[in-house]
């Protein structure tokens, strides 16, 4: 049971990240691979505020998320000047710079040793050290995330960003300030990635730069692509699948020394196969 609760927590956190990435990538067509960096900034921000300043959970998480939003606002200036595959590349460059900062800015981040003994939260006097309570917190925030992105994408604003994905030039000709829309989408997406990161840090209680380099970015992208571009429900199913698959593979009886590699090979195959058979993902309508 404990194990299932843990998987549910991971799935919920992954879903928040995936839904927000889908908002950026699937709904608006900004092919960013820097989402795990914002996830990482949120995690580091929250963790450092909790361990170094003694702030309690809620203000620490909020501040962590705010910091993520600020970094995203700065990062979006260079990243959003580009499009499609060049945007993808510069976002990878940005992700690696952030990783290298986490690794080398030792006085702030503690370098490769990471941040240890991050406290579990306490809200209104209820300690969430119990996993069940933590799951409730994650689920509440996930539902909130879903509602927010659902409302946005169904609103007139949502219609404009989908228009940008379909044809940027046309939207410009209609008189929309495309760049302003894209910046706001990027920052909001990053903020929710930061929220997921903060939740992750406080749950797992130990973070290191290695948790936020390539793999989580790939995971998030696979979740979104697998579930389907522009489908919120798809992203959640994608997030659950990608979280659960490695656990299922443990039952497949592979020697544990091969587990990490064979997991990743499966992800690689999923990515390639999706691009071949279903570039729009399981539930998506739009091909990338």
């Amino acid at each position: 049971m404990d194990f299932i609760v843990q998987l549910a927590i991971y799935s919920a956190i992954a879903s928040i990240a995936a839904v927000s990435l889908n908002y950026v990538v699937g709904f608006t067509g900004i092919m960013s691979i820097s989402h795990a960096s914002f996830y990482g900034i949120g995690a580091y921000g929250t963790a450092l505020l909790l361990t170094k300043t003694g702030l309690s959970f809620v203000p620490a998480l909020l501040l962590g998320v705010l910091i993520t939003g600020l970094v995203a606002a700065f990062a979006s200036v260079p990243i959003l000047r580009l499009r499609e595959d060049s945007l993808m590349l510069v976002s990878v460059g940005f992700a690696l710079i952030i990783h290298s900062l986490m690794l080398n800015w030792q006085s702030l981040t503690n370098g490769p040793r990471g941040v240890k003994s991050i406290p579990r939260p306490e809200i209104f006097g209820i300690s969430l050290t119990d996993k069940n309570f933590y799951l409730v917190l994650c689920l509440v925030l996930l539902v909130l995330t879903i509602i927010i992105f659902y409302k946005i994408t169904k609103s007139p604003y949502g219609t404009v960003i989908k228009g940008i994905r379909e044809n940027e030039e046309v939207m410009k000709n209609y008189g929309y300030n495309v760049s302003k829309y894209k910046h706001s989408v990027f920052v909001l997406g990053a903020i929710f990635a930061g929220l997921a990161g903060g939740l992750f840090a406080s749950y797992i209680q130990y973070i290191s730069p290695e948790s936020f380099i390539l793999l989580p970015s790939v995971f998030m992208l696979i979740m979104v692509i697998l579930g389907g571009m522009g489908s919120i429900g798809g992203s959640i199913i994608g997030a659950i699948l990608i979280t659960v698959i490695p656990e299922l593979m443990r039952f497949a009886g592979l020697p544990s020394s091969f587990a990490a590699e064979s997991n990743q090979i499966v992800y690689g195959i999923i990515l390639f196969a999706l691009m071949y058979w279903r570039p729009q993902g399981l539930f998506g309508k739009y091909k990338i």
Binding site: D85, E261, I265, L271, M275, P279, I288
Partner: peptide, 18 residues
């Protein structure tokens, strides 16, 4: 599409690396 190709080749990179 080009983005599709880049994603697929990224998948291939992961497979080869592992």
């Amino acid at each position: 599409s080009n983005v599709s190709m880049i994603v697929a080749s990224f998948g291939l990179l992961i497979i080869l690396q592992n």
